[in-house]
Simulated assay, not measured.
Amino acid sequence: MTKTNDTRDLERRLWNYTHSGVGHAYGCFEVTIGVSVYNSKRQIVDFLSYYKNDFRAYEIKVTLADLNSKNSLSLVGDFNYLVLTKELWDKIEKMKQKPEALFYAGVMIPKDDDTLQCVRKSGHPTVTFGKKALLMESMVRSMDRELNKTYREKMYDEI
């Protein structure tokens, strides 16, 4: 499935947000949680970051239909956020009945300086040591996948 320009823009802003300033976070897009060989329902986090022993899970949503879809939100971190377009957030604020996802996650929207701003804080669920180990293993595996893609592309460029 091809990503929309809005999705790519939010991904770029999210990367800038998590990798700016002193002591930036480690992060990876499309992190598959656990090994899903025995489970047909894979749980994929749009972006997972790690900084100072906290995992932050980000789900990128650009339409109301996407936000309300039956696909589960992967809110697995110590802090969980929905990354929304400004237009979608404005539409949600006017709604009388808010989408269910807002009960479980904070909200981030684009800011003028090419990053994001938090407009609704995330709760802080308790993530066990075992779950943190699973998240770390999943993130490392996904980072390796991305490195392999980059390495393969570089090899083909040299040929």
Rank of each mutant, 00 (worst) to 15 (best):
M1A: 09
T2Y: 12
T2I: 15
N5K: 14
D6K: 13
T7P: 02
R8M: 14
R8N: 14
D9H: 12
D9S: 14
D9V: 08
D9M: 14
L10I: 06
R12P: 10
W15V: 12
N16P: 11
N16E: 15
Y17G: 01
T18V: 11
S20C: 13
S20D: 14
S20A: 15
V22E: 14
V22S: 12
V22L: 12
H24I: 10
H24A: 10
H24L: 10
A25W: 00
A25K: 00
Y26F: 10
Y26H: 09
G27P: 01
C28P: 00
F29M: 12
F29Y: 15
F29R: 15
T32K: 07
V35I: 09
S40N: 09
K41C: 03
R42E: 12
R42I: 12
V45K: 05
D46V: 09
D46A: 07
F47W: 07
F47M: 09
L48P: 02
S49Q: 01
Y50E: 03
Y51K: 13
Y51Q: 13
N53G: 09
D54K: 14
F55H: 07
R56D: 00
A57M: 09
E59K: 13
I60V: 13
K61L: 07
V62R: 03
D66T: 12
L67A: 02
L67H: 10
L67F: 11
N68Q: 13
N68S: 12
S69E: 05
S69L: 07
S69Y: 00
S69P: 00
K70Y: 05
K70W: 02
N71A: 08
N71E: 15
N71Q: 14
S74I: 06
S74Q: 08
L75Q: 02
G77Q: 00
G77H: 03
D78M: 08
N80Y: 02
Y81M: 04
Y81T: 01
L82M: 09
T85Q: 02
T85R: 04
K86E: 14
K86H: 15
E87M: 06
W89V: 02
W89E: 02
I92G: 05
I92Y: 09
E93P: 04
M95L: 15
M95C: 06
M95P: 06
K96M: 13
K98P: 03
P99V: 03
E100F: 11
F103W: 01
F103D: 10
Y104N: 00
Y104I: 06
A105D: 04
V107D: 03
M108F: 06
K111R: 15
K111D: 15
D112V: 13
D112P: 04
D112Y: 11
D113Q: 11
T115F: 09
L116G: 02
L116P: 01
R120W: 06
K121R: 14
K121W: 11
S122P: 01
P125Y: 06
P125M: 08
T126Q: 12
T128P: 07
T128Q: 04
F129P: 00
G130I: 10
A133P: 04
L134D: 07
L135H: 03
M136N: 08
M136P: 02
E137H: 15
S138P: 00
M139T: 07
V140I: 15
R141H: 08
R141E: 01
R141P: 02
S142P: 01
S142I: 04
R145W: 03
E146R: 14
E146I: 07
E146H: 08
L147A: 01
N148F: 13
N148C: 10
K149Y: 08
K154V: 11
K154G: 10
M155C: 11
M155T: 11
M155P: 05
I159D: 13
